[in-house]
Protein backbone atom coordinates (compact mmCIF):
# COMPACT_ATOMS: atom_id res chain seq x y z
CA UNK A 1 0.00 0.00 0.00
CA UNK A 2 2.76 2.44 0.98
CA UNK A 3 4.62 1.62 -2.21
CA UNK A 4 1.48 2.17 -4.24
CA UNK A 5 0.88 5.58 -2.66
CA UNK A 6 4.52 6.56 -3.20
CA UNK A 7 4.26 5.59 -6.85
CA UNK A 8 1.09 7.59 -7.27
CA UNK A 9 2.60 10.62 -5.55
CA UNK A 10 5.55 10.44 -7.90
CA UNK A 11 3.31 10.52 -10.98
CA UNK A 12 1.37 13.35 -9.43
CA UNK A 13 4.51 15.47 -9.13
CA UNK A 14 5.65 14.64 -12.64
CA UNK A 15 2.28 15.72 -13.99
CA UNK A 16 2.33 18.94 -11.99
CA UNK A 17 5.89 19.66 -13.10
CA UNK A 18 4.93 19.18 -16.74
CA UNK A 19 1.88 21.38 -16.39
CA UNK A 20 3.91 24.09 -14.68
CA UNK A 21 6.70 23.95 -17.26
CA UNK A 22 4.47 23.78 -20.30
CA UNK A 23 2.25 26.59 -19.13
CA UNK A 24 5.33 28.69 -18.29
CA UNK A 25 6.88 28.40 -21.74
CA UNK A 26 3.56 28.78 -23.51
CA UNK A 27 2.89 32.01 -21.64
CA UNK A 28 6.33 33.28 -22.52
CA UNK A 29 5.67 32.65 -26.21
CA UNK A 30 2.58 34.80 -26.11
CA UNK A 31 2.40 38.49 -26.72
CA UNK A 32 1.25 40.60 -23.83
CA UNK A 33 2.92 41.67 -20.63
CA UNK A 34 1.92 43.56 -17.51
CA UNK A 35 2.25 46.65 -19.69
CA UNK A 36 -0.65 45.80 -21.93
CA UNK A 37 -2.98 46.24 -18.97
CA UNK A 38 -1.73 49.73 -18.18
CA UNK A 39 -0.66 51.59 -21.31
CA UNK A 40 0.69 55.06 -21.71
CA UNK A 41 3.81 54.40 -19.68
CA UNK A 42 7.06 56.09 -20.52
CA UNK A 43 10.03 53.93 -21.51
CA UNK A 44 11.53 54.56 -18.14
CA UNK A 45 8.42 53.44 -16.33
CA UNK A 46 8.19 50.38 -18.56
CA UNK A 47 11.72 49.47 -17.64
CA UNK A 48 10.89 49.73 -13.94
CA UNK A 49 7.87 47.49 -14.33
CA UNK A 50 9.76 44.88 -16.34
CA UNK A 51 12.50 44.91 -13.72
CA UNK A 52 9.95 44.56 -10.95
CA UNK A 53 8.46 41.43 -12.53
CA UNK A 54 11.91 40.09 -13.39
CA UNK A 55 11.02 40.01 -17.05
CA UNK A 56 14.42 41.27 -18.22
CA UNK A 57 16.30 38.16 -17.10
CA UNK A 58 17.11 35.38 -19.60
CA UNK A 59 14.34 32.79 -20.00
CA UNK A 60 16.11 29.90 -18.20
CA UNK A 61 16.72 32.13 -15.19
CA UNK A 62 13.08 33.14 -15.15
CA UNK A 63 12.08 29.48 -15.47
CA UNK A 64 14.22 28.27 -12.57
CA UNK A 65 13.06 31.17 -10.43
CA UNK A 66 9.46 30.39 -11.35
CA UNK A 67 9.77 26.74 -10.33
CA UNK A 68 11.58 27.71 -7.14
CA UNK A 69 8.84 30.16 -6.27
CA UNK A 70 6.14 27.56 -6.85
CA UNK A 71 7.85 25.24 -4.40
CA UNK A 72 7.93 28.11 -1.91
CA UNK A 73 4.24 28.67 -2.55
CA UNK A 74 4.74 31.92 -4.44
CA UNK A 75 2.76 32.05 -7.67
CA UNK A 76 3.90 35.50 -8.76
CA UNK A 77 2.13 38.82 -8.99
CA UNK A 78 -1.01 39.47 -10.95
CA UNK A 79 -0.82 41.69 -14.04
CA UNK A 80 -4.41 42.75 -13.70
CA UNK A 81 -4.33 43.78 -10.06
CA UNK A 82 -0.86 45.22 -9.75
CA UNK A 83 0.99 44.46 -6.56
CA UNK A 84 -1.44 41.71 -5.64
CA UNK A 85 0.18 38.27 -5.37
CA UNK A 86 -1.70 35.47 -7.13
CA UNK A 87 -1.79 33.50 -3.89
CA UNK A 88 -3.62 36.39 -2.28
CA UNK A 89 -6.21 36.41 -5.08
CA UNK A 90 -6.69 32.69 -4.67
CA UNK A 91 -7.04 33.03 -0.89
CA UNK A 92 -9.62 35.75 -1.25
CA UNK A 93 -11.68 33.82 -3.74
CA UNK A 94 -11.40 30.20 -2.77
CA UNK A 95 -13.96 30.44 0.05
CA UNK A 96 -17.15 30.78 -2.00
CA UNK A 97 -15.96 28.20 -4.54
CA UNK A 98 -15.17 25.66 -1.84
CA UNK A 99 -18.45 26.24 -0.06
CA UNK A 100 -20.48 25.82 -3.25
CA UNK A 101 -18.51 22.80 -4.37
CA UNK A 102 -18.81 21.12 -1.01
CA UNK A 103 -22.54 21.75 -0.70
CA UNK A 104 -23.18 20.58 -4.23
CA UNK A 105 -21.12 17.41 -3.80
CA UNK A 106 -22.66 16.43 -0.48
CA UNK A 107 -26.28 17.24 -1.28
CA UNK A 108 -25.97 15.95 -4.84
CA UNK A 109 -24.47 12.64 -3.76
CA UNK A 110 -27.03 12.04 -1.03
CA UNK A 111 -29.97 12.84 -3.28
CA UNK A 112 -28.44 10.82 -6.11
CA UNK A 113 -27.99 7.76 -3.90
CA UNK A 114 -31.59 8.05 -2.74
CA UNK A 115 -32.87 8.39 -6.30
CA UNK A 116 -30.79 5.47 -7.49
CA UNK A 117 -31.96 3.27 -4.62
CA UNK A 118 -35.59 4.10 -5.22
CA UNK A 119 -35.15 3.27 -8.88
CA UNK A 120 -33.51 -0.06 -8.11
CA UNK A 121 -35.98 -1.12 -5.43
CA UNK A 122 -38.97 -0.33 -7.64
CA UNK A 123 -37.24 -1.75 -10.70
CA UNK A 124 -39.31 -1.27 -13.87
CA UNK A 125 -41.98 0.55 -11.91
CA UNK A 126 -43.20 4.10 -12.26
CA UNK A 127 -40.71 5.41 -9.69
CA UNK A 128 -37.88 3.70 -11.56
CA UNK A 129 -38.83 5.30 -14.85
CA UNK A 130 -39.27 8.75 -13.36
CA UNK A 131 -36.02 8.74 -11.45
CA UNK A 132 -34.16 7.32 -14.45
CA UNK A 133 -35.66 10.06 -16.61
CA UNK A 134 -34.58 12.63 -14.04
CA UNK A 135 -31.06 11.20 -14.07
CA UNK A 136 -30.85 11.28 -17.88
CA UNK A 137 -32.06 14.87 -17.91
CA UNK A 138 -29.57 15.74 -15.16
CA UNK A 139 -26.59 14.34 -17.05
CA UNK A 140 -27.79 15.78 -20.35
CA UNK A 141 -29.07 19.30 -19.81
CA UNK A 142 -26.03 21.60 -19.75
CA UNK A 143 -25.49 23.21 -16.36
CA UNK A 144 -25.60 26.72 -17.82
CA UNK A 145 -29.00 26.11 -19.37
CA UNK A 146 -30.25 24.71 -16.12
CA UNK A 147 -28.72 27.54 -14.11
CA UNK A 148 -30.33 30.06 -16.45
CA UNK A 149 -33.74 28.51 -16.00
CA UNK A 150 -33.34 28.33 -12.22
CA UNK A 151 -32.33 31.97 -12.08
CA UNK A 152 -35.21 33.01 -14.31
CA UNK A 153 -37.91 31.07 -12.51
CA UNK A 154 -36.90 31.18 -8.86
CA UNK A 155 -35.04 34.46 -8.66
CA UNK A 156 -36.48 36.74 -11.35
CA UNK A 157 -40.07 35.56 -11.65
CA UNK A 158 -40.82 34.16 -8.21
CA UNK A 159 -38.26 36.16 -6.28
CA UNK A 160 -37.66 33.39 -3.75
CA UNK A 161 -33.89 33.71 -3.90
CA UNK A 162 -31.43 36.48 -4.75
CA UNK A 163 -30.69 36.73 -8.47
CA UNK A 164 -26.93 36.84 -8.02
CA UNK A 165 -23.94 37.88 -5.90
CA UNK A 166 -22.63 36.52 -2.68
CA UNK A 167 -24.06 37.02 0.79
CA UNK A 168 -25.71 34.71 3.25
CA UNK A 169 -26.84 31.16 2.78
CA UNK A 170 -29.77 32.12 0.56
CA UNK A 171 -27.28 33.28 -2.06
CA UNK A 172 -25.83 29.79 -2.27
CA UNK A 173 -29.09 27.91 -2.85
CA UNK A 174 -29.58 28.36 -6.60
CA UNK A 175 -25.90 27.98 -7.57
CA UNK A 176 -25.66 24.88 -5.39
CA UNK A 177 -28.67 23.33 -7.07
CA UNK A 178 -27.29 24.19 -10.50
CA UNK A 179 -23.92 22.68 -9.60
CA UNK A 180 -25.27 19.58 -7.92
CA UNK A 181 -27.48 18.36 -10.77
CA UNK A 182 -24.67 16.58 -12.55
CA UNK A 183 -23.20 14.78 -9.52
CA UNK A 184 -26.72 13.87 -8.45
CA UNK A 185 -27.62 12.38 -11.80
CA UNK A 186 -24.29 10.56 -12.05
CA UNK A 187 -24.68 9.07 -8.58
CA UNK A 188 -28.29 8.09 -9.26
CA UNK A 189 -27.47 6.23 -12.47
CA UNK A 190 -24.47 4.58 -10.92
CA UNK A 191 -26.25 3.46 -7.75
CA UNK A 192 -29.20 2.16 -9.73
CA UNK A 193 -27.01 -0.11 -11.85
CA UNK A 194 -24.90 -1.25 -8.90
CA UNK A 195 -27.90 -1.82 -6.69
CA UNK A 196 -29.71 -3.87 -9.33
CA UNK A 197 -26.65 -6.03 -9.74
CA UNK A 198 -26.14 -6.41 -6.00
CA UNK A 199 -29.82 -7.14 -5.34
CA UNK A 200 -29.62 -9.91 -7.91
CA UNK A 201 -26.59 -11.55 -6.36
CA UNK A 202 -26.52 -14.76 -4.36
CA UNK A 203 -25.67 -13.27 -1.01
CA UNK A 204 -28.85 -11.21 -1.10
CA UNK A 205 -30.81 -14.46 -1.47
CA UNK A 206 -28.80 -15.83 1.45
CA UNK A 207 -29.73 -12.78 3.49
CA UNK A 208 -33.40 -13.16 2.58
CA UNK A 209 -33.21 -16.85 3.47
CA UNK A 210 -32.14 -15.80 6.96
CA UNK A 211 -35.55 -14.22 7.40
CA UNK A 212 -34.34 -10.67 8.03
CA UNK A 213 -36.63 -7.88 6.93
CA UNK A 214 -36.58 -6.57 3.37
CA UNK A 215 -35.48 -3.23 4.80
CA UNK A 216 -32.41 -4.82 6.37
CA UNK A 217 -31.70 -6.74 3.17
CA UNK A 218 -31.72 -3.56 1.09
CA UNK A 219 -29.90 -1.26 3.49
CA UNK A 220 -27.46 -3.52 5.34
CA UNK A 221 -26.56 -5.85 2.51
CA UNK A 222 -27.49 -4.03 -0.68
CA UNK A 223 -26.63 -0.41 -0.04
CA UNK A 224 -23.23 -0.98 1.50
CA UNK A 225 -22.08 -3.09 -1.42
CA UNK A 226 -23.32 -0.50 -3.91
CA UNK A 227 -21.88 2.46 -2.07
CA UNK A 228 -18.29 1.25 -2.07
CA UNK A 229 -17.90 1.41 -5.85
CA UNK A 230 -19.56 4.84 -5.83
CA UNK A 231 -16.27 6.20 -4.54
CA UNK A 232 -14.79 5.57 -7.97
CA UNK A 233 -17.13 8.09 -9.60
CA UNK A 234 -16.69 10.76 -6.93
CA UNK A 235 -13.51 11.74 -8.80
CA UNK A 236 -15.28 12.61 -12.07
CA UNK A 237 -18.08 14.19 -10.06
CA UNK A 238 -15.71 16.49 -8.19
CA UNK A 239 -14.03 17.41 -11.46
CA UNK A 240 -17.40 18.31 -12.96
CA UNK A 241 -17.75 20.72 -10.05
CA UNK A 242 -14.43 22.37 -10.97
CA UNK A 243 -15.65 22.83 -14.53
CA UNK A 244 -19.11 23.81 -13.44
CA UNK A 245 -17.81 26.50 -11.14
CA UNK A 246 -16.40 28.39 -14.16
CA UNK A 247 -19.83 28.88 -15.64
CA UNK A 248 -22.07 28.84 -12.57
CA UNK A 249 -19.98 31.52 -10.87
CA UNK A 250 -20.27 33.64 -14.01
CA UNK A 251 -24.03 33.30 -14.15
CA UNK A 252 -24.59 34.05 -10.48
CA UNK A 253 -21.74 36.59 -10.27
CA UNK A 254 -20.09 34.77 -7.39
CA UNK A 255 -16.64 36.04 -6.39
CA UNK A 256 -15.00 32.62 -6.61
CA UNK A 257 -12.03 31.02 -8.31
CA UNK A 258 -13.94 30.10 -11.44
CA UNK A 259 -15.18 33.60 -12.13
CA UNK A 260 -11.72 35.05 -11.58
CA UNK A 261 -10.16 32.42 -13.80
CA UNK A 262 -12.40 33.30 -16.73
CA UNK A 263 -11.77 37.03 -16.19
CA UNK A 264 -8.02 36.50 -16.07
CA UNK A 265 -8.13 34.65 -19.38
CA UNK A 266 -10.16 37.47 -20.91
CA UNK A 267 -7.59 40.11 -19.90
CA UNK A 268 -4.49 37.92 -20.46
CA UNK A 269 -3.41 38.05 -16.83
CA UNK A 270 -0.83 35.28 -17.30
CA UNK A 271 0.53 34.91 -13.76
CA UNK A 272 -3.00 34.48 -12.42
CA UNK A 273 -3.90 32.06 -15.22
CA UNK A 274 -0.83 29.97 -14.52
CA UNK A 275 -1.41 30.01 -10.79
CA UNK A 276 -5.01 28.96 -11.15
CA UNK A 277 -4.16 26.34 -13.76
CA UNK A 278 -1.73 24.81 -11.29
CA UNK A 279 -4.33 24.99 -8.55
CA UNK A 280 -6.96 23.24 -10.65
CA UNK A 281 -4.47 20.60 -11.78
CA UNK A 282 -3.38 20.07 -8.20
CA UNK A 283 -6.95 19.71 -6.95
CA UNK A 284 -7.79 17.35 -9.80
CA UNK A 285 -4.82 15.08 -9.18
CA UNK A 286 -5.33 15.18 -5.44
CA UNK A 287 -8.99 14.15 -5.76
CA UNK A 288 -8.16 11.22 -8.00
CA UNK A 289 -5.38 10.09 -5.67
CA UNK A 290 -7.48 10.42 -2.51
CA UNK A 291 -10.35 8.56 -4.14
CA UNK A 292 -8.10 5.66 -5.14
CA UNK A 293 -6.53 5.39 -1.72
CA UNK A 294 -9.89 5.73 0.00
CA UNK A 295 -11.26 2.94 -2.12
CA UNK A 296 -8.43 0.69 -1.06
CA UNK A 297 -9.15 1.42 2.58
CA UNK A 298 -12.90 0.98 2.45
CA UNK A 299 -13.28 -2.14 0.34
CA UNK A 300 -12.25 -5.07 2.56
CA UNK A 301 -11.36 -7.15 -0.49
CA UNK A 302 -8.75 -4.66 -1.63
CA UNK A 303 -7.64 -3.63 1.83
CA UNK A 304 -6.28 -7.02 2.71
CA UNK A 305 -4.68 -7.84 -0.59
CA UNK A 306 -2.54 -4.75 -0.37
CA UNK A 307 -3.97 -2.08 -2.61
CA UNK A 308 -3.27 -3.79 -5.91
CA UNK A 309 -6.17 -3.55 -8.24
Amino acid sequence: MARYIAKRLFYMFVALFIIASVSFFLMKMLPGSPLSAQDKLSDEQQEIVLEKYGLNDPLPVQYVRYLGNIVKGDLGISFQFSNTPVTKIIQDRIGPSMQLGFQALVVGTILGVLLGMIAAIFHNGFLDYSSTLLAVLGTSIPSFVFAGLLQWVFAVELGWFPVAFWGGFEYTVLPTIALMIFPMATAARFIRTEMLEVLGSDFITTARAKGITEYAVVFKHGLRNSLIPLITVIGPMAISLLTGSLVIEQIFAIPGIGEQFVNSIMVNDYPTIMGMTLLIAFLFILIVLVVDILYGFIDPRIRISGGEK
Binding site: S201, D202, F203, T206, K220, N225, I228, D299, P300, R301
Partner: peptide, 8 residues
Protein backbone atom coordinates in the same frame (compact mmCIF):
# COMPACT_ATOMS: atom_id res chain seq x y z
CA UNK B 1 -17.95 -17.89 -3.26
CA UNK B 2 -20.96 -15.72 -3.97
CA UNK B 3 -23.45 -16.60 -1.25
CA UNK B 4 -21.70 -14.59 1.45
CA UNK B 5 -21.79 -10.80 1.61
CA UNK B 6 -18.24 -9.73 0.69
CA UNK B 7 -18.29 -6.53 2.74
CA UNK B 8 -19.69 -7.88 5.98
Amino acid sequence: MTSLNPTM
